[in-house]
Amino acid sequence: MNSWAIALYRYRHFVTSSIVNDIKSRFARSRLGALWVILQPLAQVAIFAIVLSEVLMARLPGIESKFGFAIYLTAGLMAWSLFSEIVLRSSTVFIDNANLLKKISFPRICLPVVVAGTALVNNAMLFLAILVVFALLGHWAGVAIAYLPLLVLVTTLFAVGLGLFLGVLNVFVRDVGQVTGVVIQLWFWLTPIVYPANIIPEQFRAIVALNPMTHVVAGYQNVLLRNEAPDLQSLLVPLGLSFVLMFVAFLLFRRASAEMVDVL
């Protein structure tokens, strides 16, 4: 672990430039360029607010604001977009960069870090867009927003651990990448994002509670919608699982690292 930390520090400029280039490549030949980083999530959040609140008239129990459900959904999507982007991109990061790995000598651990860094920048832009739309709706962020960095950290650790584990496996068993996309879609619907947790039948609530992302998403929703602190005790579940996944993923990565380039 220490050797990887030292290697990342030595190649910090490579990691930073890769993140910048990754973001720039999304908007190559675009006249508005990096403005799309703000405009895309801003449009997405605005559409949710208009369609759910004004057209479908969706209401959230216990929340007086007519935009309550739109805010609830947007908060959950902010958590899920960070998690899913890191997991999905990490699961194919070594295969996608096979040519780079064969031509240039650099610590392979840099690639998952670049993926996580890019996802964090994208998520930060989404967060800024969310704050703008929430303000336009008359919903202002409160002091509970101070807990958001903790939630982002837990989400990132969990996603990186899972994504790195799947990424290494995918090099040797290519079916893993295909299955991951399907599982992430199913996982999304098993997490209370587009529906309130209290509508889940009583007999299934214990199963939903085993879902680590249930607690993470609930934390985002409490902070951004209710201006309440997240349930820190419930976050111990995804946090503990994150450390287990990180340990297993790094152990697997260390053992398979020497063979990965030959397989690719």
Rank of each mutant, 00 (worst) to 15 (best):
S3E: 13
S3L: 10
W4L: 13
I6A: 15
A7V: 04
L8S: 01
R29Y: 15
R31W: 13
G33R: 08
W36G: 07
W36T: 09
V37M: 14
Q40E: 11
Q40I: 14
P41K: 03
Q44S: 14
Q44M: 15
A46I: 09
F48V: 07
V51A: 12
A58V: 14
R59L: 11
P61G: 05
F67M: 08
G68P: 05
F69G: 10
A70I: 10
L73T: 11
L73I: 09
L73W: 05
S81G: 00
S84P: 02
S84M: 06
S84T: 14
V87N: 04
L88F: 10
D96A: 14
K103L: 15
I104D: 01
S105H: 10
I109W: 06
C110K: 09
L111V: 05
L111H: 03
P112K: 09
V114P: 10
N123M: 14
N123L: 11
A124L: 15
M125C: 13
M125G: 15
I130M: 12
L131C: 14
L131T: 13
H139V: 01
W140C: 01
A144M: 09
A144V: 02
I145K: 03
I145H: 04
A146I: 15
L148I: 04
L153D: 08
T155I: 08
V168C: 00
N170E: 03
Q178L: 12
V182Y: 14
I184E: 08
L186N: 01
W187M: 07
T191Y: 05
T191R: 03
P192N: 06
P192F: 00
Y195H: 03
Y195C: 06
Y195W: 02
P196W: 11
A197T: 07
A197G: 14
I200Y: 08
F204D: 07
V208W: 00
A209H: 01
M213V: 11
T214L: 03
H215N: 07
V217Q: 01
Y220C: 06
N222E: 13
L224S: 08
L225N: 10
E228Y: 04
A229E: 10
A229P: 10
A229M: 11
D231K: 02
Q233G: 09
L236D: 01
G240W: 00
L241R: 03
L245D: 00
M246C: 12
F250Y: 13
A256Q: 12
A256H: 00
E259W: 10
M260G: 02
D262H: 12
